[in-house]
């Protein structure tokens, strides 16, 4: 099958635009893109989302604790959330971001892809991965957040959503 080439810069551009915009919309946090990728001093909160279909990817979010707490608090400032509720709220925030990213990509490709529910994972260091990679670091008043996207693409007329 022919591969649909997805430009790394296109992915980066889409991810950046959606992430910054949706973060401002949902939690009123201004995320500033950093020039260089910065490994975070602490990666207490890592989440993984997988996509399947025309756009196959693994998206990792690495979030410093204070940023995580800020996101959770801003999603509902009226109540004191439990630890479990904070996790579920942040998962929804990441779900919205990734869904909107994938929507942009789907529209550009003219094909459909699906995504998994975000799951929290132990910090993942992926080595010797053959897929393309793009990584972005962001800073806000509370700390840092990284987004790493490993991706490939294929023209897949047979749906294989084995997420």
């Amino acid at each position: 099958m022919d591969k649909i080439e997805i430009n790394r810069l296109d992915i980066e551009s889409i991810v950046n635009a959606v992430f910054v915009d949706i973060t401002m919309q949902m939690v009123s946090i201004k995320m500033l893109r950093q020039e260089k990728f910065n490994s975070l001093s602490s990666t207490d909160y890592c989440f993984e989302i997988r996509t399947e279909g025309a756009f196959i990817s693994l998206i990792l979010f690495e979030i410093e604790e204070k940023v995580y707490e800020r996101i959770a608090t801003k999603l509902d400032e009226n109540v004191k959330l439990t630890i479990q509720e904070k996790k579920l709220y942040v998962i929804e925030y990441l779900n919205v971001i990734c869904g909107r990213i994938l929507s942009e990509i789907n529209d550009r490709l003219g094909k459909r892809s699906k995504l998994s529910v975000p799951i929290r994972i132990e910090h993942k260091v992926i080595e010797q991965f053959t897929w393309s990679r793009t990584d972005m670091s962001y800073a806000c008043l509370d700390g840092g957040l990284n987004i790493v996207v490993y991706f490939e693409s294929k023209d897949n007329t047979k749906e294989d959503f084995n997420i």
């Binding site: 919205v96 990734c98 942009e104 789907n106 529209d107 003219g110 094909k111 459909r112 699906k114």
Partner: peptide, 12 residues
């Protein structure tokens, strides 16, 4: 209701 709101999803 979904964050996945592209044309192909709408078609689905």
């Amino acid at each position: 209701l979904s964050s996945l709101c592209d044309a192909s999803t709408m078609e689905e």
